[in-house]
């Protein structure tokens, strides 16, 4: 029982981190038809800049704020200089965002050095609660709470505000939205920035969770996020959280019971979705 609860919490926490990464990816894809291969790079930049601010100021929340700010700035720059010049050209977009991904992860090594950087949760989030003989690690609960909050917030904005309405309409039919006199370019930029900020937030939350950060982690998590996006359906926001939790849980349970199969199981899941439901579980377009 104790093992089950711990594995579930662990899986949920990892799932939430992947969700933060995949949510931006799926929204950007749904709205702009851009698959951003540099998203993992933004994630890693969030982790590094956030951890750097956290360790130098001592305040974890300053670190989180710093990571979000980094995400917003990098998102703005990426949209303006990298994505915009190649709008509507799928192959060029794929190629160019991969190039950016590599430059971003190498730049990390230039700025913060090639070695791993360690991080630990702040004192008020360290340690664990004991309920009977079940040990619950505080930081995992914190991550799950933050993930759910972000989900609720974005879901609220999408469903109940004017901007959310425009974004949802844009996912369905960009041209129509444009012909109604709405500046869709501005919406694109905003969604891209928010997506990048969510990725950066995921990165900084991961740092104390896994204990170390390194430049290659962007690519590793990006691959998981791609799997999530394919399973959940490109462009589906609720799909991304369900698929992320699914991938997180299957990862944590498999790592405990059949460790050699933990990555393969996600691949099998993705292959099954691609064969039987190529648009994803909740996808609107293929």
């Amino acid at each position: 029982m104790e093992v089950l609860i711990n594995l579930t919490l662990n899986g949920l926490a990892t799932g939430m981190l992947i969700f933060l990464l995949a949510a931006g990816l799926t929204l950007i894809f749904g709205l702009m038809d851009v698959l951003n291969f540099a998203h993992g790079g933004l994630f890693a930049w969030g982790a590094y800049s956030g951890t750097w601010i956290y360790t130098s100021t001592g305040s974890f929340f300053a670190g989180i704020a710093g990571a979000i700010l980094t995400g917003l700035i990098l998102g703005l720059a990426t949209e303006k200089w990298i994505i915009k010049p190649v709008y509507g050209n799928h192959i060029q977009q794929i190629l160019i965002t991969l190039g950016l991904m590599l430059v971003l992860s190498e730049m990390l090594k230039v700025v913060w050095g090639p070695n791993q950087i360690s991080a630990s949760p702040p004192s008020y989030l360290a340690g664990s609660w004991e309920l009977g003989n079940i040990i619950i690690i505080k930081y995992r609960v914190f991550i799950i709470a933050v993930g759910l909050m972000v989900f609720a917030l974005v879901q609220y904005v999408l469903k109940s505000t004017k901007i959310g309405l425009v974004v949802r309409a844009g996912v369905m039919d960009k041209e129509m939205v444009q012909s109604l006199g709405i500046n869709i370019q501005k919406i694109f930029m905003m969604v891209f920035m928010v997506g990048a900020a969510m990725a950066a937030l995921g990165g900084v939350l991961l740092a104390p969770y896994s204990g170390v950060i390194y430049a290659e982690m962007g690519l590793e998590f990006a691959i998981l996020a791609f799997i999530v996006v394919v399973i959940g359906g490109m462009g589906s926001f609720p799909g991304s959280i369900l698929a992320a939790v699914l991938v997180g849980l299957s990862g944590s349970f498999m790592a405990y019971y059949v460790p050699s199969l933990s990555l393969a199981v996600n691949m099998l899941l993705m292959s099954a979705v691609l064969i039987f439901r190529p648009q994803g579980l909740f996808g609107l377009k293929g």
């Binding site: 291969f37 799928h90 192959i91 590793e220 791609f226 996006v229 993705m270 691609l274």
Partner: peptide, 15 residues
């Protein structure tokens, strides 16, 4: 499927 799927899947399988 669309071109991104091949790019994504090959990246994941190579991983």
């Amino acid at each position: 499927l669309k071109s991104h799927f091949y790019a994504m899947l090959t990246m994941a399988v190579a991983g």
